[in-house]
Design a binder for these strands. Structure first.
Length: 135
DNA sequence: GCCAACGTTGGC
DNA sequence: GCCAACGTTGGC
């Protein structure tokens, strides 16, 4: 089991949009580092849904339901996508500010490279953010 | 193969 | 709307 954090601008696609659809292809990722992380995802892995630009916070947890397959929005055949489904909405969103302020998350990949749209989390980091959402 | 120019992402 | 970080492109 591995843990991830995935960014989306909520005015384009939000966590509530995912809940409404039930399942969605996480497409449009055009960055090699982020693609590498998506290729490493396995069915059953968990990922935070993070709202960039608006909110700037983790809002929910998703399950990876289908592993890497060709991105249906890509005509070149070079890029892959995974499929995700909503698991649970966080009781309280965890903001980027709160993550940055927490020493336990100092090594988080996203904090070290803010533009990375798909990033890995350790189990400790994942559990810590879940705990913050319930505090 | 280096590096400057340029475009995009994303936080503020 | 600005700007820093970072990726990509193209000239040499």
């Amino acid at each position: 089991m591995h843990y991830w954090l995935m960014k989306s601008e909520p005015d384009a696609f939000s966590y509530d949009d995912l809940v409404a659809k039930g399942k969605a292809e996480w497409d449009g990722v055009r960055n090699h580092a982020a693609q590498g992380h998506m290729k490493a995802m396995r069915k059953g892995d968990l990922a935070f849904f993070y709202h960039s630009n608006i909110g700037v916070e983790a809002v929910g947890i998703m399950t990876i339901v289908e592993e890497a397959a060709p991105d249906s929005t890509d005509e070149t055949g070079k890029w892959i996508a995974v499929h995700v489904a909503p698991r649970e909405k966080l009781a309280k969103p965890v903001t980027l500010t709160a993550m940055k302020a927490d020493p336990a998350l100092a090594d988080m990949a996203m904090l070290r490279q803010s533009r990375l749209s798909v990033s890995p989390l350790t189990k400790e980091q994942f559990d810590h953010i879940v705990a913050m959402s319930k505090a």
